[in-house]
């Protein structure tokens, strides 16, 4: 077992607390089958760029950064994005604590909407634990105010915290509105050898999504590489690996 990064400094009133979904990502990315795949897939020397979209506490990004030798068999650079500026700061601290400035470069956590600030074709490993709960999306017209304001009355501060937390779980219709935007941008941001890991819950209808991805122009694979929640609970989770189909 690789150590779980320390997130004790993170304020869970405003930032998603690592939960079953986060741990499923850690377990899947460090499973023997997935590390065997990643070692073989990234055996060429070019240093991979791993990007976590919507880092929250940063537990997943820090795990990849601190354990890159085990998981990838090489040094990688890591980059995160989050809509919540407070999460960007907290996640950066999580990575620094986990890596102690020794591992390969952690670049930054950019305060950005999904992959919007990324250059075309650079991401080798993309990880996304989306807001996947079918619940109304927070009002984004209020985001700029809540994202940067520090001096708010206590009732406004409560509204701000509710807004920031909702960003981390509320996914709109089918819990898929945010994930759909991310999926749309995957072909643009992934490198030719790029691999994306996206988490879904049962209500997101992952089998339908996988069939749809396989129809993307250019030939794409989508395969379930991890799952949890063996009971028939609605929050049964799975992780789907998305990449260009190999022609061999």
């Amino acid at each position: 077992m690789l150590p779980t990064p320390d997130t004790s400094h993170v304020d869970y009133d405003q930032i998603y607390e690592p939960a079953e979904d986060s741990y499923l990502l850690l377990d899947t990315l460090s499973s023997s089958s997935e590390t065997a795949f990643l070692h073989s897939h990234f055996r060429s020397h070019h240093a991979p760029l791993a990007v976590e979209v919507g880092t929250g506490s940063g537990v997943v990004l820090a795990f990849l950064a601190a354990n890159s030798t085990t998981i990838f068999n090489r040094s990688i650079c890591t980059l995160g994005t989050d809509l919540n500026r407070r999460a960007c700061i907290a996640a950066s601290k999580t990575v620094h604590k986990a890596c102690d400035n020794k591992a390969a470069p952690f670049l930054t956590v950019a305060n950005a909407d999904l992959t919007s600030a990324l250059k075309d074709g650079e991401v080798d490993v993309l990880v996304f634990n989306p807001p996947y709960v079918p619940a109304e999306l927070p009002d984004l017209s209020l985001h700029a105010k809540y994202n940067t304001a520090d001096t708010l009355s206590s009732s406004e501060a409560f509204d701000r915290d509710s807004h920031l937390l909702a960003l981390s779980y509320a996914g709109g219709v089918d819990g898929m509105e945010v994930t759909e935007r991310l999926l749309d941008d995957i072909p643009r941001v992934l490198s030719p050898r790029g691999v994306a890991y996206v988490l879904f819950c049962a209500q997101n209808k992952p089998e339908e999504i996988k069939s749809r991805i396989r129809q993307w122009p250019g030939g794409w694979d989508a395969e379930t590489v991890g799952s949890s929640g063996k009971k028939a609970g609605w929050e049964k989770l799975c992780i789907v690996r998305i990449m260009k189909a190999t022609t061999n």
């Binding site: 930054t108 950019a110 305060n111 950005a112 994202n147 940067t148």
Partner: peptide, 9 residues
């Protein structure tokens, strides 16, 4: 150290 890439609507 945190760059803000959020655009006005």
């Amino acid at each position: 150290g945190i760059a803000n890439f959020l655009l006005p609507s």
